[in-house]
Design a binder for these strands. Sequence first.
DNA 1: CTCCGGAGAC
DNA 2: GTCTCCGGAG
Length: 356
Amino acid sequence: MLDWYGEHQRDLPWRRTCDPYAVWVSEIMLQQTRVDQVRPYYDRFMDRFPTVEHLGKASLEDVLKAWEGMGYYARARNLHRAARRVVDEHGGQIPDDPARISDLPGIGPYTAAAISSIAFGRDCPVVDGNVVRVLSRLFHLTDTPASSAARKRIDGLAGRLLARGRAGNFNQAMMELGAKICTPRKPRCGECPVNPFCEARKTLPDPAVLPRKKPRPQRPHHRVVAGIVRRNDEVLIVRRPTDGLLGGLWEFPGGIVGKGVDGETFLAEEMKNTLGIGIRVDRSVATLRHAFTHFEMTLQGYNCSHLQGVVRHRDGNECRWVRFEDLGRFAFPRAYRRLIEAAAKVREVREPAGST
DNA sequence: CTCCGGAGAC
DNA sequence: GTCTCCGGAG
């Protein structure tokens, strides 16, 4: 595995250093996100926040802006909180101890083991989704890794296989193998360095049936409407509560429309109730779909006009009137960013640049 | 009352 | 992947 890794590892920015902070940032970004998507974000992030101190001193607003588009924004909030703690409690040094690293928000067993082995050379086995898949096939494990017993068995195997003294490279080799060779659907068994030892390959017509997945429940579908409310040359944006879904991000006011309810009527009603303003719904800007982990939504955006009333959010959420051109400075969820793009096109048609 | 394990949220 | 919540366990 080590030889294979030495020869086939991808040249990734975070592999060019063993700076614990760099490893940490990359591992957090890599949680639930593909390497290809992470790469550009990682470079920008490290450019903007080169050290734990930089990150700790930054505002959550700035961190979220740098994270915009990657999803799972709790990762950014936790990373930011953790950086502050590293600065305050550990003098800016990331602790060289798996248990202490785990204490930091956003760092669980996987990330603690990854940082410990890669940045500090500790003999900690790393088990992420890739490793689970590799080991399930290598040892022909037929129980779903969703069960705690099966999972413990996998953790045990990972520990026994670990190349002592070279844990960092070994762990990365396992994950790399899962990412490039032992892939979920069509594994390239012919190119696998450990294929002589693979029980699944020996036993099964198709090793890809492992690991056994547990059936997923159907995702509910929500219809969401949002209003881009104009007042002179500004539009209204509202900030979501720090905790919960898309916490701390900005969006256009609106909400989930119940079944059988008229979207435009609901939108006007919602603005009245939540913000205390009267608006007129002018026209639909775009309808787009977005998938979250546990539900899907259809987002319909409308251009609206402010009629009357001073904005005052019922729940105290921060609200701002900003120039359309300045929306880029705020962190929006992906779906809303796309809505902004659509709205910008509509504007171009109606008010070509330089027309005023 | 603290400690898992499972489930669902993010 | 991690966190949070919750019921059952000790």
